[in-house]
Structure formats: C-alpha cells, structure tokens
C-alpha cells in the first residue's frame, strides 16, 4: 500500500509541476542568427555562425557539408535545422536563417519576391525489387498505382502471380518524402513495412521475392540480390539523373534572398558548398553533385 501511495504522490507532484511548466512549453527555437562576423571582410578569413533551415531531406547532405566546412574554415560553425522546404523558403525570405533549404525548385511567385534558388545537388531515388523478380521496368504511373494499392499483384505488370509487398520508409524520412512527392502518392501509400533505414529497406527487399522498395541511388549501387528497375525505360544512374531523363529525382536547392546580402561567413560557406570541392561530400551523403 505504501508503494502505491508513493507512486500516486509522485504523479500528483509531477502533475503540479506540469501545470506550472505548461504555459511556457511551446518553445521558440528558431531565433535569428547571432551575427558576429561584421568585422571580417575577406571571405577566407570569415568567422561566425551560419544558420541553415528547411527540408529535412537535405539534412544528410547539409550535415556532411557542415562537418566538412569545419575543416576548411574552423572559425565558422554551420547549423542545420529541419522544418520542411516551405519553412526553408520562408526562412530565407524573412531572414530567420542565412540560407534556406528546399528539396524542390522555387516557383515563379517565390522568385518574384526576390528569392534565388541555387541547385546544390540532385537526389535520385531508385526503385528496387528482388533479384529474381522478372519485372525490370515500370512506368512512373504504375509505380504510383502499386504504392497506392491499385495494382496489388505482380502479374498485373507482367510478372509472376504473386502479391506485391510494399516496402517503404517511416514518416519523416527524406527519402519517403521525396518518393511520395514525385510519384504524387503523399499519404496514400499502403505500406506493408515501414523500415527505419535505407539498409533495412534493401535487406527487406533482398529477403522477399515479392517486395518492391525505394532507396537513394548511392545506397543501391553495388548491392547484390536486388535490382534497381528502369522507370519508363530509363535506368537510374548518375548520368540519367544529371541529364534529367530519370523521373524519380528532385533538386536540393539553397535558397537565398537577393535583397539581403549574406554575411561573410554565410557567403564563404555558400561558395564552398556550390563549388566542386564539396562534390565528394555530397556524393558521400547519397546525392548527385551538380558543380563541375
């Protein structure tokens, strides 16, 4: 009885504290960048912090770049925050972040407001099936129909008579966001498994002959037991992504405001990230770099 009472007391106490804390809890966590780099005029000697905010799909690439830039210029710290592409565009417009991140091209309205989009890299998503699956090509529409449950059997797309098992990523994943937005199947996908990493998706497809899944191109290359199918007859390679013929791809865009000048630190990071020097890091993060 004593223990029960103690437990109840704990809860009651906790409850009181919660009541006190409740009002302040919606924290404001996206404050404007502390700009202490005014003194530096030479970009190479820039110091301070650079805030980037936006598409969570770009988190991997940006974290690689932020880490890499520390080696180039140790006086600059680059922070990466999520929030989505629209939040990234908004942040660039209002100046709450130095650089906005968007995993889509800017539309005409946004460009009319003075925003400039610079493509940092391209993100190609390969559609993968089991190595023994006779199906080797699907159209974008067929892929969308498979993931929304309109096509449920491989025989409907020229394969064996077997039910299709849909493998995907969990909610919040950049790969899932990219795949669903390009195939226009947002929130309509009827997954059989939501896996928590790219490796797990590949493993799930490898161990299930009826499975279909998706993963970044870089993760799929060289994997045995799975096949990246061609989409509308186009294979998923760096070349087809760069020339735009492979359909399931999207740009990673750095958004800046032409009305406001970047701080020296932000400019230095921007120049470095969009130069060929960052290509290796971008590739390592799973995207296709565009700088030459």
């Amino acid at each position: 009885m004593k223990k029960i009472t103690a437990a109840l007391l704990t809860l009651a106490l906790a409850g009181t504290l919660a009541a006190c804390g409740g009002e302040q809890s919606p924290a404001t966590n996206s404050q404007p960048a502390a700009d202490n780099s005014q003194a530096a005029s030479d970009p190479a000697a820039a110091s301070g912090s650079v805030t980037t905010l936006g598409s969570t799909s770009m988190n991997d690439v940006m974290n690689y770049l932020a880490e890499g830039f520390r080696e180039v210029n140790g006086n600059v710290t680059v922070t990466v925050e999520g929030g989505g592409s629209s939040a990234g565009v908004e942040a660039a417009l209002t100046g709450t972040a130095d650089i906005g991140l968007a995993s889509r091209a800017l539309d005409a309205d946004e460009e009319a407001q003075g925003l400039v989009g610079t493509t940092l890299a391209l993100d190609g998503i390969a559609v993968i099936v089991h190595g023994d699956n006779p199906v080797s090509d699907l159209t974008l529409e067929q892929i969308a129909q498979i993931y929304t449950g309109e096509i449920t059997n491989w025989s409907q797309v020229g394969g064996d008579d077997a039910e299709i098992a849909l493998m995907g990523r969990e909610d919040g994943s950049g790969t899932r966001d990219g795949f669903e937005s390009i195939t226009e199947t947002e929130d309509q996908c009827d997954y059989d498994q939501e896996l928590t990493s790219t490796g797990a998706v590949i493993e799930a497809v490898r161990s299930n002959p009826q499975a279909i899944g998706y993963a970044s191109l870089s993760a799929v290359e060289g994997e045995e037991g799975i096949v990246a199918i061609t989409v509308g007859g186009v294979a998923c390679t760096e070349a087809t992504i760069l020339d735009g013929t492979y359909a399931i791809q999207r740009p990673f865009v750095l958004v800046t405001n032409s009305d406001a000048q970047l701080t020296p630190a932000a400019q230095a990071f921007f120049d470095w990230a969009t130069s060929a020097q960052a290509n290796e890091l971008i590739t390592a993060a799973g995207a296709v770099p565009v700088a030459e």
Binding site: T10, A14, A18, G22, S25
Partner: peptide, 18 residues
C-alpha cells in the same frame, strides 16, 4: 532519477495531450 524522469515525462507529455 525516478522523480526526474517521471516529472520530465509528465511535463513534456501532458501539454500535447491537452
């Protein structure tokens, strides 16, 4: 530790439920 975890969970969990 128990107190801290309990309080922390309630403080961070209750507002969303509310």
């Amino acid at each position: 530790c128990v107190l801290f975890i309990s309080v922390y969970l309630v403080v961070s969990g209750v507002p969303a439920i509310a």
